[in-house]
Nucleic acid binder design. Structure first.
Length: 543
RNA sequence: GCGCUCGUAGCUCAGUUGGAUAGAGCAUCAGCCUUCUAAGCUGAGGGUCAGUGGUUCGAGUCCACUCGGGCGUACCA
């Protein structure tokens, strides 16, 4: 809002003064309030091409700037050659009225209109319950999808899964063994089976359905176990996701790539391109000719494809559906597939830059400073459901979002459990609840008859300026695929509100001033509630 | 070994496309409730930004190397 204004003014001036030098004007919101509202470093950038000291250039620029004193109050040179713009309060306040007109839609943008984005996340195979790593994946993907929706993109949320292959066979065998153990505790459990308690629950369900022993360990019996296991796990997974406000549009089954002949098609294309060859009974992809280090097997000598092939075929299908942006959310353990898929789709003639892979690091759970073990093997693993049960949806989502995706996330269970000021989620929610409470007591405001020019104090001005930054914060958060940028912004905003609340009373003050402050509180509430909505966190009216 | 990634206050982490005096929360210490929710506010202490060198007006941020943690490096996914 303020930045656009400065860019406009400077473009005119610079085109007049130095038309031959192309320059990108970079605006900065200074940390130090004494440096004005917007700071610009063009003079330093011009120092070299012009061969003049930056402060001299800055003076030249300022002398030639044509600006309305109703908009910009003051322009000054500072430090090595910064040009600092200080806006007139009346301009700031009139900008606030535009935000108030937008109401609950403030923050929504249309830069993505007509463009399609696909975000694939969670994508856990139905072999068990979701754990914390899945939770981080889910919340990252869901929030990225929300961000793009707010920018006006048409967003498809997708879940990719595999209900065939080794893992599922293993699940079937594990269920069958538990089923048999109900009557015969000595029945052998497979060496590499799934040890989780949930397998027993599935087996018990099966026992109710088929009280008389299923015969033998034959294909049909295992198929039944597999199917039962898949259904059971998916029901649980969807239930857990729903609890976190997550629902996806497409569940894409890897198996359909085989059934619809897509795997075979891709093999043929690679062969036709001369990028696939047979060796040792397996089919290899010539990744060495596609910019990578080594060739890799795409079809094993057993005839089964390796994970690379369906991954490439799947991405090809996503391209064929016509997305402008394809986002994959992966845990750090799946990083190896990324270069292969990128090289693969490129070889198939698609634009690899349209694929954005988000790799997030692992989550560890601590309690009172000690690491809580999460082992799949022992079955003692701490599931996402356990966590939701213990600390609630809002806390889980916020904790999983408040760190950059590249860092290892330490989930502090003791802190998360804390229903107090130590818990950072409440800081945001509390600000929202406080505003709602004011409105309960103050009643309605008449937005048409508000004199915003009364908002002169430092607390008020700082809060307004922060509110201005909301749209660009959403953009930055989406462009960088970092929800954390938004969580940090909301914490700052809540902080500024709390200061405003403390120093600027509403109820009991003079009517016009109270109205103006109520307007500001309303704008703040809209931003908080919209921001929390994007994060998938509730904005309570009372706490 | 090679690839990716991270290393910032006692702890957990921010730090926009390089910008001005490196920030926040927790913890520690000192204050603020006859006034709209104290889940709040105000103040204090706390730093060799892992290290070395380089790029330039200017580096926590970019480059190279070193050290240390995580992940990967399959005819597993």
């Amino acid at each position: 809002m303020l930045k656009e204004k400065v860019i406009l003014i400077l473009e005119n001036t610079l085109n007049k003064l130095y038309p031959e030098i192309p320059l990108e004007i970079i605006c900065d919101t200074p940390k130090n309030l004494q440096h004005g509202d917007i700071s610009v470093n063009v003079a330093m950038q011009l120092a070299k091409p012009l061969g003049k000291p930056p402060r001299l250039i800055a003076e030249e620029i300022i002398e030639n700037i044509q600006s309305d004193s109703q908009v910009i109050e003051n322009i000054e040179i500072a430090g090595p050659g910064f040009i600092n713009f200080k806006f007139n309060k009346s301009f700031i306040n009139s900008s606030l009225s535009k935000i108030l007109e937008l109401g609950v839609n403030y923050g929504r943008q249309n830069i993505g209109t007509g463009k399609n984005v696909n975000v694939e996340y969670v994508s856990a195979n139905p072999t068990g319950l979701l754990h914390l790593g899945h939770g981080r994946n889910a919340v990252i993907g869901d929030t990225v999808a929300n961000l793009y929706q707010w920018l006006g993109f048409n967003v498809t949320r997708e879940y990719y899964f595999n209900n065939a292959g080794n893992q599922m066979n293993n699940l079937a065998k594990s269920i069958f063994a538990r089923y048999m153990q109900i009557e015969n505790p000595d029945y052998d459990f497979p060496e590499d089976g799934y040890h989780g308690e949930y397998i027993k629950l599935i087996a018990e369900d099966l026992k109710k359905e088929f009280p008389i022993e299923l015969k033998g360990e034959e294909k049909e019996v295992l198929e039944l176990c597999r199917k039962k296991g898949e259904e059971w796990c998916f029901a649980k997974i969807k239930q857990t996701l729903q609890r976190m406000q997550i629902s996806q549009d497409i569940f894409y089954n890897e198996d359909s790539l085989y059934k619809d002949g897509k795997i075979e098609e891709v093999i043929q294309i690679f062969k036709n391109l001369g990028l696939a060859y047979e060796k040792d009974g397996a089919l290899w992809l010539k990744l060495s000719e596609m910019g990578l280090e080594n060739d890799r097997v795409i079809v094993k000598s057993s005839g089964e494809p390796t994970y690379r092939l369906p991954d490439i075929a799947y991405h090809r299908e996503k391209f064929r559906r016509g997305y402008d942006l394809i986002v994959d959310v992966f845990g750090a353990d799946h990083i190896a597939t990324v270069p292969d898929v990128i090289a693969g789709v490129k070889a198939l003639g698609y634009e690899p830059d349209k694929v954005k892979v988000l790799i997030h690091q692992f989550v560890s759970l601590t309690e009172n400073g000690e690491l809580v073990k999460m082992s799949k093997r022992t079955g003692k693993s701490y599931t996402l459901d356990d966590l939701l049960e213990e600390v609630g949806e809002d806390v889980v989502r916020f904790f999983l979002l408040m760190r950059g995706i590249g860092t290892h996330l330490e989930f502090d269970l003791s802190l998360a459990r804390e229903q107090s000021d130590k818990n950072p989620v409440f800081y945001l929610q509390y600000a929202h609840a406080r505003i709602c409470s004011i409105f309960d007591k103050a009643g309605e405001i008449d937005l048409k008859n508000v004199d915003l020019s009364l908002l002169n104090s430092e607390e008020e001005q700082n809060l307004i300026k922060k509110i201005f930054l909301f749209p660009e914060t959403i953009r930055a958060s989406a462009n960088k695929f970092e929800a954390q940028i938004l969580t940090e912004y909301l914490r700052d905003l809540a902080g500024l509100f709390h200061v405003f609340y403390h120093n600027c009373r509403i109820i009991g003050t003079e009517h016009n001033l109270a109205n103006a402050r109520l307007s500001l509180a309303l704008a703040t509430r809209n931003v908080l509630s919209n921001g929390l909505k994007i994060l998938g966190i509730s904005a309570p009216e009372r706490m």
